[in-house]
Design a protein around this nucleic acid. Structure first.
Lengths: 221, 221
DNA sequence: TCAAAAGTGTTCAGACTACACCCATGA
DNA sequence: TCATGGGTGTAGTCTGAACACTTTTGA
């Protein structure tokens, strides 16, 4: 099992980035290269339990707001030595939680990845593609955002995860209409430059939910 | 590995049904119940190759127009005896190809499944949900339809796979606008009841392709 | 009073559904 | 010429992108 764990970093600054959790290999093969966290499955646990257990060594498990299966990588020669099959997972950690990391482990921006071990590079790319797609038709943003947030913050989070800037106006309307976000009624304090105080929102659910199931060919009625 | 292989049966009649390929277990455990085709992975093949090899015993491999990974089922107690992990696949066979089947193997309508072995029932349900979703945002219909077809036939195929009737008019326009289907220029002969001859179409590609990537939050421009 | 940030209003285009209407064929 | 099945026209709704404009704050 291998997990691609994402978090949006630097939410308060103006240039947030989508980061992925990697650890640096101390031993051959691929010494010095960066790898996804993971490990072997035990006989008494299922895959999801196993991934959560493996990640507990890297990040606080309670901070993983969403975890789902991605693809299985099974090419016979994908790693040297005994034949190994990798079942990959997508994990999401909300901002701004910054759990303590072991010394060999770091967050890396997905737009500037270090040399990656084995076939872990394509796995990160696959995971991001899946995240991008799900941002547009599910409420999966709940797993990246703080509990309460201003719309401009959410705009930056979506922008980092999608890889392009989105309009806060339309984000509010799309997510509002679908019932994905709810206003809390409270407002944030403006920064030192002034500006109108921002209304705060939260995600309505903290479980993934498909909000826009059919692009076309939806059932009649 | 286990494969959920679908085909739409009775395309020429007026009530086509979505069928799944099952074989009946002759031995305990679960003797007499119906199971998905599959088998064990060899050390020198990847999962896709393995699934194709396993299915060759059941259906002609050339008839599998599409094959993709689904989920991994890994609960420790999902089958009795030694712990087994099932990686499931979705396979699609075009109509009206009707390959010869071994005596223990049959097509069963998904709406009227026999008693299923182990956890294979939920696997079929999961596969159909994925198929339904992909019909609306990809060109995956190519793997269920004949090479050339009238729109009313395609309407029945989509209806069987989706579980509800669709409008042939709008199907034509949606798939036409997206470039999924192309008119061949030829027409079919009317049946004995008369009626205007139907124009024939074919799918433009025979490889899966996402046609409607973003439900919302698409990139600017 | 001005700049900055947030929020609202408005317009526009595209996609999809539903349904009425027209066309071509066999008996 | 009529029943049958196929195809086209069209209206109407909904969604979302873009962008101008207004509101609320700190300095």
């Amino acid at each position: 099992m291998l997990a691609v764990v994402f978090q949006v970093g630097d939410v308060t600054s103006r240039k947030p980035a989508l980061n992925v959790l990697l650890w640096q290999r101390a031993l051959d093969p691929e010494r010095g290269k960066w790898a996804l966290p993971g490990g072997r499955l035990r006989d008494d646990e299922d895959l999801t339990t196993s991934v959560r257990r493996q990640l507990a060594e890297k990040v606080d498990v309670r901070e993983i707001a969403h975890l789902e299966q991605l693809a299985v990588f099974s090419e016979p020669g994908r790693v040297p030595g005994v034949r190994t099959i990798a079942s990959t997972f997508l994990g999401l950690v909300p901002s701004p939680a910054t759990p303590e990391l072991p010394p060999d482990t770091r967050w890396h921006p997905v737009n500037d990845l270090p040399p990656m071990a084995f076939d872990h590079g394509p796995m990160v790319a696959y995971a991001q593609a899946r995240l991008v797609a799900k941002l547009s038709y599910t409420n999966i943003g709940f797993a990246l955002a703080p509990r309460e947030f201003a719309l401009s913050t959410l705009r930056d989070i979506y922008g980092a995860a999608l890889g392009y800037q989105v309009d806060a106006t339309n984000l509010q309307r799309v997510l509002g209409r679908r019932g994905v976000i709810t206003p809390t009624g409270t407002t944030a304090h403006p920064g030192r430059n002034g500006g109108r105080p921002a209304a705060l929102y939260r995600f309505t659910d903290s479980q993934i939910r498909v909000t826009d199931e059919f692009a076309a060919l939806r059932p009649p009625g």
